Amino acid sequence: MPETRRADARRNYARILAVAEEEVAAQGADASLEQIARTAQVGSATVRRHFPTRRALLEAVSRKRIEALGARARDLSGAADSRAALLEWLGDVVAYCVAARGLAAALAYDGAGAGPVHENSCSAALEEAAGPLLRRAARDGAVAEDVTVADLITLSVGLALATEHHPDPAAASDRLFRLAVAGLSPRG
């Protein structure tokens, strides 16, 4: 949030974000914006002024996790085994999407249209951070050259959303992730 806003607007933003973090953690991506407004003791219009779309709210709630995943990609970029580094990072993305309610929705492509209000800053940040990791793995012949970071994010989101109601979503998503990486062919 720009520091040029009035002090009360900055306080409202911080209060709304703190409440939203709690609500999304408890309710997931479908947390009630009206409940967030009530708990933050602001009007619904104030919430929408700061977060014009649900995605904008989810992205703000997920920002720290996205920064951590970006830092993780940068840390792994110098690893000796480029494929192992990429898969370790991707496994972290899947695990984060499963553990951090709302993150998968923040990363998902929604097709809402063009324009700054619909841009997906979470996915863009991950694509920028993981691009060198993926390019190195492709250059090493460890990953198909036509794979994109967007593909990997979509896979992660799909695994998280497909397993969110499973009794053990972390184990189920990890199993499916390993299956996706290994392929369907028998080991031999």
Rank of each mutant, 00 (worst) to 15 (best):
R72D: 14
Q35P: 00
L155T: 08
E127F: 00
L76C: 01
A142N: 06
V117N: 03
Q41G: 14
D30L: 10
V98K: 06
T148P: 00
I66A: 03
D146L: 05
E67L: 13
R72P: 00
P167E: 15
P52M: 08
G78M: 01
V19T: 14
L155W: 10
V61L: 02
Y96K: 09
H165T: 15
A7D: 09
T4R: 15
V61Q: 04
D75Y: 00
F177L: 12
A71D: 12
S121H: 13
P2N: 11
A9M: 07
A162H: 10
S62H: 00
L159V: 09
V117C: 05
V24S: 03
R65E: 12
D174R: 15
R6A: 11
H118S: 07
P169N: 13
A180E: 11
A162L: 14
L76T: 00
V149N: 00
A160G: 08
V147I: 13
P186T: 11
A45S: 14
T46H: 09
L134C: 05
N12S: 15
L176A: 13
A172M: 11
D174C: 03
L69P: 08
G188A: 15
L159E: 08
R135C: 05
R6K: 14
A150C: 02
V47C: 08
E34P: 02
V117M: 09
A170D: 07
T154N: 11
Y13N: 03
P167R: 11
T154P: 01
A180Q: 12
C122I: 00
G102T: 01
V61A: 05
R63A: 15
R6G: 14
R74N: 06
Q35N: 15
R5Y: 12
A85Y: 05
D8N: 11
A105T: 11
A31F: 01
A104V: 06
A26M: 06
A80K: 09
S62T: 05
I36M: 02
Q35L: 15
P186H: 12
Q41S: 15
A99T: 09
G102R: 01
I66L: 07
A138T: 12
E22A: 14
C97T: 11
A129Q: 09
C122Y: 00
A99M: 03
S121W: 08
G91A: 13
Y109M: 10
P2V: 09
